[in-house]
Each structure stands twice: as C-alpha cells, then as structure tokens.
C-alpha cells in the first residue's frame, strides 16, 4: 500500500519534473559546458575544449563590458527611482478616500501591456524634432528652454530614455505589492506610536518602514534581477545603439548566439548573467537574514 502511494506520487509529479529537467536543468548545465567550448553553428572547425578562453574573450570585449556597465547603471538608477515612486503611490493609495481604486487601476494598467508594445509606443513618444511628444512636454515644463533632442539616437539620452519607459511600465507592479504590505501592518502599531506622541513623519520611519522591510527587500530584488535581464526594449527601441550606449548582456548574448551563430560565446555571456542574478539573490538573503538576527 505504501509503495503504491509512493509510486502514485512519483507518477503525478513526473510530467512537471520531466519538464523542469529537460527545459531548465539540462540547458543550464549545457550553458555551463558550452561556455568552455568553441561551438558555432555551421562552423567547419572541430569542437574544441577552450577552458576559460571564451570568458577571457568576452570580458575583454569592449561591447560586452559596456553591456555589463549599462545593466549596472540601469539597476542603479531604475531600482531606487522605481521603488520610491511605487512606495509613494502605495502610500497615497493607502487612504480611505472616495474613488481611490480608480487610481490603482490606472497605475497598474501599464503592467499588463506587453513590453514590446510599450517599446513601440515610446519610440513615437521620443520622436525627434519640436513636435515629438517628449520634446514638446519638456519644452512646456522648461518654459521653452528645452532644445529638442533625438532621444534614442543620442548617446547620452538613449539609456535614460529606456530607463524611463521601463519605470512607467514596471512601477505599478511594485506598487501593488507594497500596497498589500502597507495594508497588512496592524493599526495598533500606529495607535501605540501616536499615543507615544510620534507624528506622521516619525510613524513612517519607525513603524511603516521597518514593518515593510521584507516587502521592500523583495521588490528591490525582483527589480534588480529584471534590470539585468533587460532585452525587449533595447531590441526594439535602439538595437543596442548608438555605439553600444544601450547594449545589454542579453542583447549581446542574442547577437552572438543567434545573429552570428556563436553559440558558445552566447552561452558564456548568459552564464555571466546567471552569476549576477545569483549574486543579487545571495545579497538579498544576507540582508533579510541580518534583520532576523537583529530583531
């Protein structure tokens, strides 16, 4: 009887386990293995074991190092800005006011938009010339002092332009999670704080933020990882240009493996991407567990 149940359990989980093995675990080990070779589709050269040669090559390649820096810049700018924006929105929405749910709908709506559609729409928003929507807007708020720019072909502005697009699309996701976090904070904590004479500002620092800490750590983790997976917007809006100003690790990997058929090189790049993701998750765990020790 026990054996039969054991077999049944294995059988019902088999499809999922098979899928995860074939489509996640095998490719993962294959990525690591391929990164040490010279594999190239349709190449006449024999397959060779190169050791760390492929990694030496990509890490000394100026486009790839630029891609790593771009991803890092993207994370350093987008993560704090988007988190602060999302937290502000969540705080504004966490009020008992008539019609507040409408605003939640509006802020969350971009999240259901596919990134490729968002990218295409924002290409037109960033249209060059004085009639471009973003140019016109900046001219309006600067009282006519803004000189129209071609955002996506400007080496200085292309990456910030993609950052803004991404914040617009992603802020609602963080907001919803933070709002749920805010709503789960017990009102007794606020009552106790106000009895102790703490004003709004001190309540925010001493009740809200500490209670929201784990939620904040989580949204920061997710957004940081997304920053390193950046691809769709770059592929559609700038194709990594101008002069690698917006290239990313994933864009370089796809260019290598897909456009130039250099499978081994692309695999090595994605292994680097995975190591970064692993590092971010490890940091998050350390920060989260530190808190447990403190409390």
């Amino acid at each position: 009887m026990r054996e039969r149940r054991s077999l049944a359990a294995l059988l019902i989980s088999a499809p999922a386990l098979f899928g995860l093995t074939l489509f996640v675990a095998v490719p993962f080990f294959l990525a690591v293995a391929l990164g040490f070779t010279n594999l190239r589709l349709g190449s006449p050269l024999p397959l060779e074991w190169l050791g760390f040669e492929q990694y030496r090559r990509i890490l000394t390649d100026s486009s790839f190092t630029r891609a790593l820096i771009n991803n890092l810049l993207f994370a350093l700018v987008v993560v704090p800005l988007q988190t602060v924006l999302a937290l502000s929105l969540a705080l504004l929405l966490n009020q008992r006011l008539r019609g507040i749910a409408w605003f939640r709908t509006i802020f969350f709506m971009p999240v259901v938009f596919p990134l490729s559609l968002v990218a295409v729409v924002w290409v037109l928003i960033y249209a060059p010339g004085p009639n471009g929507m973003m140019n016109e807007f900046l001219q309006l708020v600067s009282f006519g002092n803004w000189v129209p720019r071609d955002f996506l072909r400007d080496p200085q502005l292309a990456l910030p332009a993609i950052m803004l697009t991404s914040i617009w699309q992603g802020a609602g996701f963080q907001m919803v999670i933070l709002l749920a976090g805010l709503q789960s904070i017990s009102s007794e904590l606020y009552e106790a704080a106000s009895i102790d004479g703490a004003g709004r500002w001190r309540q925010f620092w001493h009740v809200t933020l500490p209670q929201l800490r784990n939620t904040l750590i989580f949204v920061v983790l997710v957004t940081s990882i997304l920053a390193f997976r950046l691809f769709d917007q770059v592929q559609i809006m700038t194709r990594g240009g101008p002069h690698d100003a917006t290239t990313t690790v994933m864009y370089e990997a796809v260019e290598a493996a897909f456009t130039r058929q250099q499978v081994a090189r692309g695999a090595a790049m994605t292994v680097v991407l995975f190591l970064v993701v692993l590092l971010i998750s490890w940091l998050q765990r350390r920060v989260a567990s530190q808190e447990r020790e403190l409390s």
């Binding site: 294995l10 996640v24 095998v26």
Partner: peptide
Amino acid sequence: GRNLLFKLVLAVLIIPLEAIAVPLFYM
C-alpha cells in the same frame, strides 16, 4: 526522494529564462 526533489525544484526557481535561452535555442 520527495525532499531531495523538492530542494531541486526550489534551486531551479532562481534560473531565469534568459540564462538558459542560448542552449535551449541550440537544443
């Protein structure tokens, strides 16, 4: 084997599609 397999499932959680897209494409 349940506990071991479940740990492996949790370990797989961290692998994003991007990290395996190239070998998966090759496969």
